[in-house]
Amino acid sequence: MIPTVVSVAVFGIFGGLLRFATGTWVTANYPRHYYLATLAVNLVGCLIIGYLYGAFLARPDAPLYLKAGLVVGFVGGLTTFSSFSLDTLRLLESGQAPLAFGYAAASVLGGLLATWAGLYLTKL
């Protein structure tokens, strides 16, 4: 159990740092489009989790610490639904309802598509 907990924590650090770096870069370069950072990490995270799901289905003997570290730690640290919700609310509050709804649709539909694509990549 201890190796799994350590793995989730360590991989979570890297996922969180990558998310922070993405947000910092997008905000510095495109401040009006701050929400694109959350969209990007969520879509990439969906692609990664789909790929990992397929890879681990093909390798059921992969150690639990690796599965949990990558899926729960790294992808969990990289993506977040709460930031997506806040970004959508901020867009609505600023009077950008069409953009808010487009962003929400792109996040949900894009996330599902990216997860499917990640799983599909394991079958190539």
Rank of each mutant, 00 (worst) to 15 (best):
D87G: 02
Y103K: 10
S82H: 01
A104G: 14
F81M: 07
V72G: 03
I48R: 12
V72T: 10
A104V: 12
G111E: 01
L99Y: 10
L43S: 10
S107Q: 05
I49K: 12
V75N: 00
I49S: 15
A62Q: 06
Y65F: 13
G118C: 00
V41A: 11
L86I: 08
D87Y: 03
G76W: 05
S85C: 04
G111D: 04
V44E: 08
L113R: 02
T80G: 07
L113D: 02
L78C: 10
S107F: 00
G102V: 04
T79G: 03
R59I: 03
G45T: 12
S107E: 04
Y51K: 07
V72C: 07
S82K: 05
F81W: 11
A68Q: 13
C46Q: 10
N42D: 15
V41S: 08
F81S: 02
G95H: 05
L66A: 09
W116I: 09
C46R: 14
S85D: 00
F56P: 10
L57R: 11
A55C: 08
G110F: 02
A114V: 05
L43N: 15
G50L: 14
L99R: 13
L99N: 09
A104M: 08
Y53V: 07
G69E: 01
G77A: 03
G111P: 07
F101P: 08
V108T: 02
G102A: 14
S107T: 15
E93F: 02
A55G: 08
I49D: 11
Y51G: 10
A100L: 08
A100Q: 15
F56S: 07
C46I: 13
L119T: 01
Q96A: 09
K67P: 04
G54F: 07
L86H: 04
E93I: 03
S94E: 14
G111Y: 01
L89W: 01
T80R: 05
S82L: 03
S107W: 12
V41N: 14
G118M: 00
F81E: 02
G102F: 08
L109S: 06
A97T: 15
G54V: 14
W116K: 07
G69P: 02
P63H: 08
L47D: 08
A106L: 12
P63V: 04
A40V: 10
L78Y: 05
E93M: 07
G111A: 06
L99H: 13
A100R: 01
L119W: 12
A100G: 14
I48K: 14
G102Q: 13
G118W: 04
N42V: 12
T79P: 04
I48H: 15
A114T: 01
P60C: 12
P63E: 15
G118S: 01
G95L: 03
L43H: 09
F81C: 00
L57G: 08
F101V: 15
G54Q: 08
F84A: 02
D61Y: 05
A58V: 06
G95V: 06
Y65V: 05
Y65C: 14
D61H: 06
E93D: 13
T88G: 07
V41K: 08
A68D: 05
L52M: 10
T115H: 01
T115Q: 06
T115V: 14
L92D: 03
V41E: 12
P60Y: 07
A106T: 11
G77D: 06
I49W: 07
A100D: 08
F101W: 15
L91M: 09
T115Y: 05
A58D: 13
G95I: 02
V41I: 12
G54A: 11
F56E: 11
A97M: 11
